[in-house]
Design a protein around this nucleic acid. Sequence first.
DNA 1: CCCGATTGATCAAAGGTTTGATGATTCTGA
DNA 2: TCAGAATCATCAAACCTTTGATCAATCGGG
Lengths: 179, 179
Amino acid sequence: MTDNAAPPSDLTFWSFVDYAVRKAEQELPSVNTDAMRMVLTLNRATSMVIYDLESSVHRPRGLTWPGFRVIFALWLAGPMEAKTTAEISGMSRAALSALLNTLERDGLIVRERAAHDRRALQLSLTEAGYGAILGSFRAHNRRESAWAQALEPDERRELVRLLNKLMAGSTDAKAKFRS
Amino acid sequence: MTDNAAPPSDLTFWSFVDYAVRKAEQELPSVNTDAMRMVLTLNRATSMVIYDLESSVHRPRGLTWPGFRVIFALWLAGPMEAKTTAEISGMSRAALSALLNTLERDGLIVRERAAHDRRALQLSLTEAGYGAILGSFRAHNRRESAWAQALEPDERRELVRLLNKLMAGSTDAKAKFRS
DNA sequence: CCCGATTGATCAAAGGTTTGATGATTCTGA
DNA sequence: TCAGAATCATCAAACCTTTGATCAATCGGG
């Protein structure tokens, strides 16, 4: 611990990014501050958006964020096998399996054995599930729109372009993905 | 369900973004696709980065992602009260309380009653905690650097600027934050 | 001064995630 | 054909998170 400038007393989740980058550079001069700032900012911005969506849109309607992701995927790409659902909704098959217990209990989805491969599971939305995703997604999209208004249209496009480029580089970086 | 163009069979976590935006517009013509694409992209890009960091850097070292966030905050801004730690590491006080049990058991942090307010908790890193964050953060930052290389320096700055602007708009959007 | 309101941490119950193991089914190559 | 390998879902244990309740300590207005 090199220095002891007291941390500002008004540090917040968001303002911590700047503070952390400066302080880390003091502690560890070899740090790559550009990369640090980028990842820290990306992570925190996303946390705030998702937390807002989950707590203001989905929880009040009885859905968790992962539950929403699954019925959202089934709405747009379903019916489909559990393996595919796990892949496109971004969770492991084990996590999906646990989550499906809740969604099935709540009557939103149906599990059926696949005809062509008796190991596999075919997932589909029930009528209630269809109703739930329709209502939830509308509210979700209204909330997204409020967030999106902070940027100009071309800024939104640029943000998307940069994130796409970042992901395109992930194979180069040999990133680890969910199995 | 308007149309039944079969979902591409090679849908992945990442390519689902494009598919979902197109399909949602068919299902629900009133959808704000710009906002939808932005939030979906933001969320998925971040998931991939964080999953990679957690699974390739932190878990192998015996840390979870939330555990890392907490000792990272204590490293740079600590010692400090639990309430502040929760705020700047982005979790509720209840979640932090549970998490501290693990970190304390593993000998990385110390809980002490604050002198000036006997309700409050003063948190600090142990020697082991300091060693853990130093080693973990170095590896973490190397991994961040690999990701960051996918963008040009000015693109990284632009990404950060856009995310900052997005967050600046969050108060307008009356976003809900952690209490 | 003191009682009611607020604040800080923790608890409890329900839920989702991880890794690694298990059991069932299907595939593959000799 | 058939035995070993791969694949699919699920389970188990440990962990983190959420909401809402509880308890102790502190603050503030009358």
